[in-house]
């Protein structure tokens, strides 16, 4: 079956199995391995990507169902080799340790900041509760999102 979709602004056309997940399409077919997986049951959030700006877990998403829509992965956030403000804040706040949850975490945070540019700590916790992190205890992740929201606000 043919699937056609846009990932990070690039249009891809690929032959794929009809029941291929978006996660498998991204990682195995397009070799965009920045998106991770930790469970394949939607419980860890490591595979979070944006579809038309909304966060979804790509492990439970049929690739064919997002045909014609715009997919954004962690690779699509940084522009011109520079770090996006969220990515920069994750670095400077020590919000990434092993880094395995980080791509999904940043994508979830990106979705939040697009919807709510100045979220409260409670709103950040709510938005990220589907992204498990085993390393950080979440303090520094929340700090990073708060800082990124602040720097985007200042830049706007």
């Amino acid at each position: 079956m043919r699937v056609e979709l846009s990932v990070n602004g690039d249009l891809y056309r690929r032959e794929s199995e009809p029941d291929l997940t978006l996660l498998a399409l991204l990682r195995d077919v397009l070799e965009l391995t920045g998106t991770k997986w930790g469970c394949l049951t939607g419980d860890c959030g490591a595979c979070t990507v944006l579809v038309d700006g909304e966060p979804i877990v790509s492990c439970l998403q049929l690739a064919r169902q997002v045909e014609g829509r715009e997919v954004t992965t962690v690779e699509g956030l940084a522009g011109n080799g520079a770090l996006d403000s969220l990515q920069a804040a994750f670095v400077s706040n020590g919000a990434a340790q092993c880094g395995f949850c980080t791509p999904g975490m940043i994508v979830s945070a990106e979705a939040l900041l697009r919807a709510r540019p100045s979220p409260s700590e409670a709103e950040i916790r709510e938005a990220l509760s589907g992204n498990l992190c085993r390393c950080t205890g979440y303090n520094k992740i929340i700090d990073a999102v708060l800082e990124a929201a602040g720097s985007r606000g200042a830049a706007a």
């Binding site: 939607g42 959030g45 979070t48 966060p55 877990v57 979830s108 979705a111 709510e126 509760s129 589907g130």
Partner: peptide, 9 residues
Amino acid sequence: LGSVQIRTM
């Protein structure tokens, strides 16, 4: 119900 991601789907 689930997470934001799950509820979005």
